[in-house]
Amino acid sequence: MFLGTIIYGLLNSAVLAVMAIGFNLTFGISGVANFAYGAMYIFSAYLSWTLFNLLEWPYWLAVCTSVLLTMLLGALMYQFVLLRVRGQALAEVIATFGIGLAILELFHYLGLVGFEYTLPVLVDDGVMIGDTMVDWQRILVTGVAGLLVAGLWAFTHHTRLGLAFRGIAQDERTALTLGIESDRIAMLSVALGCGLAALAATVIIPLGSISPSEGYEVLIKALAVCIIGGLGSTGGVIVASLVIGFAERFTDSYLSSHWTMIVSLAAILLVLGVKPSGLFGRQKELEERI
């Protein structure tokens, strides 16, 4: 049981990291707290489901299309809504929250809930580690988590666009004087964040099923991971997903599944109260609290 809990803690952490990384990227670069993140996750899941099951497109084409369309939706959201309230953090929060709410409640209204609303697993098989059964899909998620973290690190440190991303994250005005168009970069960062949400949906949804309430859950989990790790810090995301992932699994096996959510929420409150910039966020301390 103990070994099983450890293994599942690790896999759970990978799921959390994949969920949170897009939110973290957008916030870290453009400072936009994208509260429509959970809605983007669910939107892309339903989109791939529709393309794959109703229109019977090949799987890879359906997934790629839905990721691209979600990115496009994110870019449109930035261009038509966020651009006009840019810089007013609270207006941004209310606007993105409103969009997310509208999308999620629309799906809720359409009532697309049930076991048939799920995406296919890539490999329908498992492997025994010790005496614990682990399915390949979860291992795939772990692999994706590793690839994403490494890929994003390489992207932000070694490509022109990635360096521009970090430029506007550090100082928007100085970046402007160097010819980096901050509005366009911010738009790209929102779009990329939404695309990562879509990617996360593609690999995580097969573990369960698609439902609008999942959208709120994803948003809360992404917020939890990002707050604990420090908003905008990739290292923080990894450490925080490990913390929450293990905490959740251990409460689940040794206490009761009712307390799983409470533990992660309590962890957020604790970290926010003591160190609001999170475990690894060092910049902008004065903007966060006084």
Partner: peptide, 15 residues
């Protein structure tokens, strides 16, 4: 969390 400002306060109240 009274010391938190802006978005950070909002996140806590959401949670």
């Amino acid at each position: 969390v009274l010391r938190l400002r802006g978005v950070y306060f909002s996140m806590v109240t959401l949670i």
